[in-house]
């Protein structure tokens, strides 16, 4: 009996030691991580969007109503809204960027850029359908079938890095020109 008891105790001791060891590892890991450069996914995605605008050429008609501004439309419940709204006032191709929350798909039609996350489905599909053929750059976030829905650029996360897809056909249909420099960095469809 005493033999069994001591046996069990030994096991428990082993387990405790291992737990403590594991714990040290974990704390250490957190300390080491501090040295690695890590940033918020939403901020990086917003920065991506801002960068995209430098590589896209809109037809002049797109700015007929309001030549001095370029409007980024987002949906009411856009999860990335705080990061996107931080872009307000930045300069894009000599125009001031305005971020606008839209309640209805109709309001989006006056924008030059529309950004939406997968989390916004199903409102997303309806909004994208309303924009078909208009000179609006549609950028989506993690929407697998963005091309079918009429999107032009889709952001995705691969492991801990952000990458993007481009659908050139959809862009051309809307009268937008995407620079070859941007295409070079994109993951081509069918890749």
């Amino acid at each position: 009996m005493s033999l069994t008891t001591s046996f069990f105790r030994q096991k428990r001791l082993c387990l405790s030691l291992l737990l403590v060891g594991w714990w040290l590892f974990f704390s250490l890991g957190a300390a080491v991580h501090a040295a690695a450069q890590e940033v918020s996914e939403t901020q990086v995605k917003a920065a991506f969007l801002y960068n995209f605008t430098k590589f896209v050429e809109w037809p002049p008609s797109a700015f007929a109503a309001n030549p001095g501004t370029i409007t980024l439309g987002i949906l009411e419940r856009e999860p990335l809204a705080p990061a996107l709204e931080a872009l307000q006032g930045k300069e894009v191709q000599g125009r001031k960027l305005v971020v606008k929350r839209c309640r209805h798909a109709q309001e989006l039609k006056t924008c030059q850029i529309f950004f939406a996350s997968a989390a916004e489905e199903p409102a997303l599909a309806a909004a994208m359908a309303a924009l078909k053929g208009l000179p609006v750059l549609i950028v989506t976030d993690e929407v697998d079938d963005f091309a079918r829905l009429g999107g032009m650029i889709n952001l995705i996360r691969q492991e801990d890095k952000i990458r993007f897809h481009i659908d050139v056909t959809n862009a051309r249909r809307s009268g937008l020109k995407i620079s070859s420099q941007l295409l070079k960095l994109a993951i081509l469809r069918g890749d």
Partner: peptide
């Protein structure tokens, strides 16, 4: 300000948090 970074630099950044 991340918007000051180029696309290449952005692509090299590691992001944290739960993925979609």
């Amino acid at each position: 300000d991340l918007t000051e970074l180029s696309l290449q630099e952005l692509m090299n950044l590691s992001v944290y948090g739960a993925s979609k």
